[in-house]
Write a protein that binds this DNA or RNA. Sequence first.
DNA 1: TCGACGATGACGTCGCGTCAAGGTAA
DNA 2: ATTACCTTGACGCGACGTCATCGTCG
Lengths: 139, 139
Amino acid sequence: MTHATTPMTVGELARAAQVPAHVVRYYARIGLLHPTRHPYNGYKLFSPSESRRIQFIRQAQTLGFSLSEIADIFAQGAVGHSPCPRVRDILKQRIEANRKKLDELASLQSRMEAALEKWAAMPDGVPDGESVCHLIEST
Amino acid sequence: MTHATTPMTVGELARAAQVPAHVVRYYARIGLLHPTRHPYNGYKLFSPSESRRIQFIRQAQTLGFSLSEIADIFAQGAVGHSPCPRVRDILKQRIEANRKKLDELASLQSRMEAALEKWAAMPDGVPDGESVCHLIEST
DNA sequence: TCGACGATGACGTCGCGTCAAGGTAA
DNA sequence: ATTACCTTGACGCGACGTCATCGTCG
């Protein structure tokens, strides 16, 4: 062995995995990481392999997985099942959901751009009892 | 006058403005609506014109305005300033921000679709100590 | 008297960011 | 003794949704 695999504290793991320390604490709190405890001072102690776990979490997040879905994936593996079928399913749903969101945002973008263009020719209004802002009310 | 403009309760206003009643309460709580109080039972009492206010809020929301921005618009009008310049500014920012979000989601969509395609040719893995899910790890 | 409506309040969503108050390590 | 780190906890975000518990109206 060229280097020992000694347990790491929150800060050490955070540096190793390139995430803020309180994110490590958050992941531990919601059960994504499983630290042991230092018997004297109560510090959380992580196996260095938890760093790979964090990498996995961040990678899954870039694919649109939520933390609870990631927890689900871990849970599948922990009872000896392959998480892969679920992973494929979730991704398919995410792709559909994201498609919808993209459409919504594109539609919002159109509405906003159309409004801005229309407003270009309209004067500012002074506030009165009937109208709040005729720009918005005109859309 | 063909009809009286009597004050309305939460439920009446909610029906008139086509929004859930607790949304009316929420708007009142954060200061977007200004009910008076029935002196005996404490019920919130809204002027029928509050219905137009709610319509304005919902219309502004479809243009991407947040409730705090809408509150800001109301506040401008309340002190006699035209809210229009601010409204134009906010919309320009929203358009830029939404452009970024659209790009992010489009990029996410590409990553997800690329992953799904790549995974089509890959078998499911069994869990072992080294890997959680090679599908995700392969991306 | 009862059922629909009113009131207030708290808690959940999601993934953290940001204090605060205190104990520990080097 | 200082300073950087550790602990737990609570609160904020946005715009509501969903109880729970209670008072009121018709």
